[in-house]
Design a protein around this nucleic acid. Structure first.
Length: 571
RNA sequence: GGGCGCGUGGCCUAGUCAGGAUAUGGCACUUGCCUCCUAAGCAAGUGGUCAAGGGUUCGAAUCCCUUCGCGCCCGCCA
């Protein structure tokens, strides 16, 4: 266990013992102490009433009762607070020692958790290029998966491919029956096939009579006509590969694709339907079956959830139910990354699971939409920023910046750094805010390379690498007592906080807190860099500072890596 | 009509779950700092009734209630 967590546990235990002695029963919650007042604090105000004493008096009393031991150096009081000061030398020695020995696994708990988590993310319909609005999903999903992995979970990622819906049928029908006169924007299958999709949609609006052809094809697909299944799958697969190529530029890949058609073909959906029909909540209307879910907290105009159509075929969420059963058989915990528009459908799915007697439920991380200043993104209306275009622009801007600063580098090296910096800036910009907050996409924010941004953090890392590469050999048997300035102490504490931040993000399935932490860590490092010379220091002070630089480097690198952002050694 | 989420300086944002010591950072703006380990940096400054009102509490950005604003949803679509 890391020093901070251990110290916290020790202090909580000591406080609980003191509470028992005083015959008081209040929950022991520790706060972070303000600068100069120690490390952790316990507010005594709640005790005031039952003990009939002023909080300051109680704090003083508690401070004298608790003897400093373990990681705690001193216990004192200030106003109504008991303040705990940790032994800095010990904290520093352990923290730096852990970072230097564990390297890229620094932050990971001592033992793997032995818990399998399946993170499903992206899962966009393969009907065209992915745009910035949709890209929030893979960025959050991939980041969460990386955080969970670094926090010791056994993680796999998965993309659920919709290949049985109307949309893919319309696209496939277009590819088979239509000619598109224009060249695609890019030489990629997602850009190529979306033209057929758009043309097909337009044609169907103009000639509603041809809708029957779509209906026929949909019927054939749902009843397993080999040729229709093959054609649809082929078109979807091409577009899917093109989408994954774009996501690959963002360092995003998934371990497995699961095709929705599988659950129709293997008849597991039929099994779900049979189970649901047996429920007392199930009713029938014109041959279609639904569950009445009002008693499951579903509210609104409509509390019926239809799980079959009149012709007996399944609907999307029914197939998703079969998919979840499949997932539950393969994992301990299923996490889904979904837009907030899926909330009701997931409530229905969850209720259906309960009705089926399934205890497991998916955990869902919802995110709000990314819109443009002119409104919601829509491929149909042309109000859209394609992810490929944003990626190109970010890399190009980063290239201009690199060229300004580093004329000494080769062209290839400049291009490589520009790629890492530009892409990192985009990922950071999306993942730095809480998922449930709406984002209005602005080019100037997305391409920000200063302040609260990935390049700021990457830059701190590059500075650390630069010092280490110039340092030559140094004695790694350092003495942490030489880290005496406030800048050094704050930096050590920041590095020490990494494991608990990581654990918090992993256990609470949130990504932005790590982004915020990394920015803070980089700021601490930059201040240290400005005020505390390392290479020019001498003897043991130089050793200790080099150890601090290397530990900073690992904390920065591991933070960035968990955010899916590469850490260049120079920039 | 109902459900869910969001509302923090001109703009973006942390803190809200587990209420506590002067509300976190960034952008922009003003002013300094490259004969010194990479200035994508550092330092200083201007700027806030934490949407509004009420309540609970010794103490509220945080908990409860009401109202307002914005977003999403309420299909035998996916």
């Amino acid at each position: 266990m890391d020093v901070y967590s251990r110290a916290r546990e020790e202090i909580e235990a000591a406080l609980k013992a003191a509470m028992a002695e005083l015959k008081q029963d209040v929950p022991v919650v520790l706060d972070k102490a303000p600068a100069g007042m120690g490390d952790l604090a316990f507010p005594c105000f709640p005790l005031s009433k039952t003990m009939k004493k002023a909080p300051a008096v109680i704090a003083k009393e508690l401070a004298s009762m608790i003897r400093p031991r373990g990681a705690v150096e001193k216990v004192d009081s200030n106003g109504g607070y008991v303040n705990f000061h940790l032994k800095f030398a010990e904290l520093a020695h352990e923290t730096l020692g852990a970072a230097l020995s564990q390297k890229q696994t620094y932050g990971r708990p001592d033992r793997p958790k032995g818990v399998k988590i399946l993170v499903e993310h992206t899962s966009v319909n393969p009907t065209g290029p992915i745009h910035v609005g949709r890209a929030r999903n893979p960025m959050i999903g991939d980041t969460l998966a990386r955080i969970l992995r670094q926090a010791g979970y056994d993680v796999s990622t998965e993309y659920y491919v919709n290949d049985v819906g109307r949309q893919v049928v319309v696209m496939t029908w277009g590819v088979k029956n239509l000619k598109v006169g224009v060249e695609p924007e890019r030489d990629k299958d997602d850009y190529r096939y979306v033209l057929y999709y758009q043309k097909a949609n337009k044609l169907l609006e103009e000639e509603p009579g041809r809708e029957k052809e779509i209906g026929d094809m949909l019927y054939k697909l749902e009843h397993g006509d080999p040729e229709t299944v093959r054609a649809t799958h082929e078109v979807c697969d091409s577009v899917l590969k093109a989408i994954m190529q774009t996501l690959g530029r963002l360092n995003i890949a998934v371990d497995r694709f699961t095709w929705e058609s599988k659950f129709v073909e293997d008849r597991s959906v039929d099994g779900i339907i049979e189970r649901l029909k047996k429920s007392e909540h199930c009713h029938e209307q014109d041959g279609a079956y639904y569950l009445e879910l009002e008693s499951f907290g579903i509210a609104g105009r409509e509390t019926k959830w239809f799980f079959t159509r009149s012709d007996g075929t399944s609907v999307y969420t029914t197939r998703d139910l079969a998919y979840h059963m499949d997932k539950f058989a393969r994992t301990d915990i299923a996490v889904n990354i979904l837009g907030e528009d899926h909330k009701l459908a997931m409530q229905e799915l969850s209720a259906a699971l309960t009705i089926m007697g399934v205890q497991k439920k998916p955990e869902i991380l919802y995110y709000a939409f990314v819109s443009l200043p002119e409104g919601r993104m829509s491929t149909r209306k042309g109000v859209v920023v394609n992810l490929d275009d944003l990626l190109d622009e970010a890399v190009e801007r980063a290239y201009e910046e690199v060229r300004k600063r580093r004329e000494d580098l080769s062209e290839d090296r400049m291009r490589e750094i520009a790629r890492i910096v530009g892409i990192g800036a985009l990922r950071y910009n999306i993942v730095r805010v809480q998922a449930e907050k709406q984002i209005v996409f602005k080019w100037e924010d997305a391409l920000n390379f200063e302040g609260s941004s990935a390049p700021f953090i990457q830059y701190a890392h590059a500075r650390a690498c630069s010092i280490l590469s110039k340092a030559g050999d140094w004695n790694r048997d350092f003495d942490a007592a030489h880290l005496a300035t406030d800048h050094e102490k704050e930096l050590v504490k920041s590095i020490a906080g990494f494991p608990s931040v990581l654990a918090d993000c992993a256990d609470n399935r949130r990504t932005h807190a790590l982004a915020v932490y990394a920015q803070d860590l980089a700021a601490q490092f930059n201040q240290f860099y400005r005020f505390v010379p390392v290479l020019k220091a001498e003897g043991s002070a130089r050793n200790a500072r080099l150890a601090l630089v290397e530990a900073s480097m690992w904390a920065l690198k591991n933070s960035l890596n968990s955010l899916g952002i590469e850490a260049p050694e120079e920039m």
